[in-house]
Design a protein around this nucleic acid. Sequence first.
DNA 1: CTTTGTTGTGAATGCGCATTCACAATCTGA
DNA 2: TCAGATTGTGAATGCGCATTCACAACAAAG
Lengths: 345, 345
Amino acid sequence: MPNLKPGDKKPALTMYEIARLAGVSQSTVSRVLNGNKSVAPDIQANILKIVEELNYRPNMAARGLVSGKTLSVGILTRYMGSPFFSQTLRGMAVGLTGSGYLPIIALGSDLGSEDLDALKLLLERRVDGLILQVGWRFSDEYLHELAAELPLVVVGQNIPGLEDHCIVVKSFDAAYKATAYLIEKGHTCIAHISGPLFLADGIERRNGYCQALMDHGLEVIPELIVEGDFMEGSGIVATEKLLEQRQKYPFSAIFIANDQMAVSARLALYRRGVAVPGDVSLIGFDDQPDSQYMIPPLTTIRHPAYQMGMLAAQAVLGLLDGKRLYLPDLPLELIVRESVTIRSQ
Amino acid sequence: MPNLKPGDKKPALTMYEIARLAGVSQSTVSRVLNGNKSVAPDIQANILKIVEELNYRPNMAARGLVSGKTLSVGILTRYMGSPFFSQTLRGMAVGLTGSGYLPIIALGSDLGSEDLDALKLLLERRVDGLILQVGWRFSDEYLHELAAELPLVVVGQNIPGLEDHCIVVKSFDAAYKATAYLIEKGHTCIAHISGPLFLADGIERRNGYCQALMDHGLEVIPELIVEGDFMEGSGIVATEKLLEQRQKYPFSAIFIANDQMAVSARLALYRRGVAVPGDVSLIGFDDQPDSQYMIPPLTTIRHPAYQMGMLAAQAVLGLLDGKRLYLPDLPLELIVRESVTIRSQ
DNA sequence: CTTTGTTGTGAATGCGCATTCACAATCTGA
DNA sequence: TCAGATTGTGAATGCGCATTCACAACAAAG
């Protein structure tokens, strides 16, 4: 018999192997495993038993070759690890669970063309769908091509012509709301620590702030807008810069573009003996988990990071299913806590 | 000619298609793409040109079928989204970049057998390596089987017999160090807010605390150990519980099993008018990004979450390469800031 | 001008699976 | 009882690629 000689390694556990052991053809095993057509109950049971015993697992690569699907969704991001994005990522992962799809993650970066390289890795793997998190530098045109090729969802940025593939949040409105809230509490001189002004989010939040001031007849004072970088540390620097000008512009409140910066801004104020909210009221943006435990608990805008991820996952799944999903507007709620007080005139 | 009729869809962009356009055989294209054997320079250039123009990307599934590799590493976790784990995850992703391997993430959970299901999804995909993050409930025996099957790295837990596959951190020692530091500063009545005591980390940190007390001739008072859950909120509850007993056991310091709980514990103290570190000194564990901006900045143990992830990635890559990597002990450093003061006797 | 290498190339094979097709066995109805 | 319908099964094919083998063309050596 042309069987393996003693020295041979044992054959890989393939479907054919199962078939051989069950005394049926490979196609029958396939039928059983895919629950499709009719197979005699006893044969079926027997096959399942063998599969179970040998702990056989079909090879997705082979399966994918035939079906043209990989059951995986690519996620391209740069910000993995930030408390904010990790929530979004979790949303995506949770949104995908149960669907059979698994996320494959690629990390972009500023260096050279790494965004493109990372994307290439994803596309080579023939991911069935793609989620892009803000930060890459692809042209709108390229994104259109991409969207034509496979189910694409963009998180955190609005691409002209791809609006129904984009999951964004109305940062402008929320920033407006936050600022208006301060004004409503009697504040008339309000500073702003912005995010990086090369990011859409940074710009929108600043614009919302400006608009609110103007709509309420307040002046926008450039010196009271200090650019931060959305990272922890920059709250300190920005706050100190602001404090230096307090003689000239006696602000009584700061709208800070995200909570990460708010945390350190708050420390900077403490160091300088400025009471919060007694001397200066603070309002943040994002409502990260810790914010409610700050001293005082931070009044802020709740950013639905997790829901965005979840929605992104549902959107790709929808796209994969051929449905064009309706993307609801995610709410940005003002969370009132204790860092803002009424300004005693 | 037996070509496509007008109505046919265009053929998929395969290597064969490239070969046809270049007027060579498919194997020649393969040779060029894999840079292996000798191919006439002009042919080579021509093929590369066509590949570039058509934006051809080899199909990893097919390639994987032949090579038996998927160039992907499975990561099984439950804690995606926690500030701590997201650092580890980032470390893994960064550690993998440039290697050609991409991480595939599966989410386990407590519910039913979801851990196993998630793992199955990973194994079906024939991941080349596997990283397990603490939390699943697999038997040591099963883990041994797994390790025999494919490169396995376990993060955050020590599996008997698989020590050189496990990346852990000496929580016990660090907890000991933290507690000893408090003692050194003159504190003799020290409370502890522990992590969940069904987790190795929770137990070890508590044990380190107890050991330090005993080694310094201090009594371990069960009432001064309150179990938390490592989550933000539980610091409040635990602290209040502790405060209730302050009459009886006038502790002057608390060792808190992680910074997340420390943040809210600090708020609880503030609410009750207990000064930090004036009345009660605080020492945390993990050194999460925000901790240095707490009021006062938190003295804590720096946990190398990011490095653990990085190391895990390097370890699988090493294993994939056939090397048995040397896993260095990751340092747990005491970061002295301002939340601990000398106890004035 | 043969012989032995060397280099460049194509044909053929198989990776593990889904699927189509053909066919045998059994069942239906008149 | 026999034509047709139904059900269960195996053989064959191909997904896109790497790889092996065979062989042509040509160069160097005798």
